[in-house]
Design a binder for these strands. Structure first.
Lengths: 209, 209
DNA sequence: GAAAAAATACCTGTAAACTAGTAGAAAAAA
DNA sequence: TTTTTTCTACTAGTTTACAGGTATTTTTTC
């Protein structure tokens, strides 16, 4: 008989929380001890309570999943993180794994697979669904490290995505158009893309804007 | 005592289906009679069964929510559609309403609001959450009709979003670069944007690519 | 306080994008 | 079958983007 796995769920959709509770409820070796809709409440809870697994959504109102994952791994090394999201973008998944996530599932997961994943992770193994494994395998070849954008670069990127031209961005930020051009060029280079159109697409995919 | 509302749920995430069943299960005047993960199965079911409300996700593998809504309203005028999605883009919501949806909720809805919405819709009223009402109200002013893109235009749009330049798109489709330029121009005009970068952003927002 | 990173600005040149028209042929809809 | 839409292609001119440099100043970080 396995020891009961204590699980906390973090997701900003009450419906998904209900779904997770219902899915894991059928397995009496998993106990959902708490659910949170934001990162702040999770960390408050973790200060006073001990659990085995955190089921973590990527898209939360107050903090992004990758940063939460990083913080958890740093503060609570024994706590296992299971990423759960609709995002199937390789860069997001890779970042999660890099920052200590022990598993990742898409939200089209079945109850059965979910419970298997929880147990496997709780026992110190890792778990990635077949779909995720394929995505990761396919992305081995085009392995660009995830670029870090500066504050100013993100600002420029947002404006570029809104269709504002270089001279007008310069005007808006009261800097030289030449500076805007430089930032723009650096963005394109950092993200490894060909032009602004693709830049916007990749930026949206990687949740940068 | 109210009559029991027969509900079918269409969502490609088993977790959300579980969540919906759990949320509606607490109200004994709502009966979830069937759940589907795609449009095809839904329509097969509707041919032989009668229900009151369809809870419909926008993002399904085989068909988009707007088209499903249009088909349901056309074939089964008495059937009420309640849109349920994470998409808070005004154009998507407007299209759903235009094609007969009686209500729309975001997936961050609570169980309570969900049951209220179901009953209200079942009784012939409409229901939009406060958040959705605000989104719709804010979008009254910038009221551009949703542009219809042709097949060729969508093709060009996809390639533009991938960062492919006009001459190379022309080469790929074996048409004149001048033709590609024309399509590109029409796209920018139809979508009411300033340039390719913004075009890509809007196109992604409106789920065109 | 020194070193590193980021933000600023400039130059030169080429390629592509955008503006604004027109217009015929093919395909789809009425 | 006529009408409308879509796809195609053209001319000509302006603006912006992109490539590949260099370099100073300001801000963080160590």
């Amino acid at each position: 008989m396995k020891e009961v796995a204590k699980v906390v769920v973090v997701d900003d959709h009450p419906l998904v929380i209900e779904g997770l509770k219902a899915s894991m409820g059928i397995d009496n070796t998993i106990a959902v001890v708490a659910c949170f809709e934001n990162a702040k409440d999770l960390f408050t809870f973790l200060k006073r309570n001990t659990v085995h697994v955190v089921v973590l959504d990527i898209n939360l109102p107050d903090m992004n999943g990758v940063d939460i994952c990083k913080t958890i791994t740093h503060k609570y090394p024994h706590l296992k993180v299971l990423g759960l999201s609709t995002y199937n973008d390789p860069s997001i998944i890779k970042q999660m794994v890099k920052h200590g996530a022990k598993g990742y599932l898409l939200k089209n997961v079945t109850s059965k697979e979910l419970t298997v994943a929880i147990h496997q992770i709780r026992e110190g193994l890792s778990y990635f669904s077949a779909e995720i494994q394929k995505i990761l395998a396919d992305s081995i070849f085009d392995d660009k490290p995830v670029p870090k954008l500066t504050r100013r670069e993100k600002e420029i990127l947002t404006l570029v995505a809104e269709g504002i031209t270089t001279p007008k961005i310069a005007e808006q930020l009261t800097i030289s158009p030449l500076t805007v051009e430089t930032h723009r060029r650096n963005l394109i280079q950092k993200m490894g893309v060909a032009n602004a159109a693709q830049l916007v697409k990749i930026a949206i995919e990687q949740r940068l804007i």
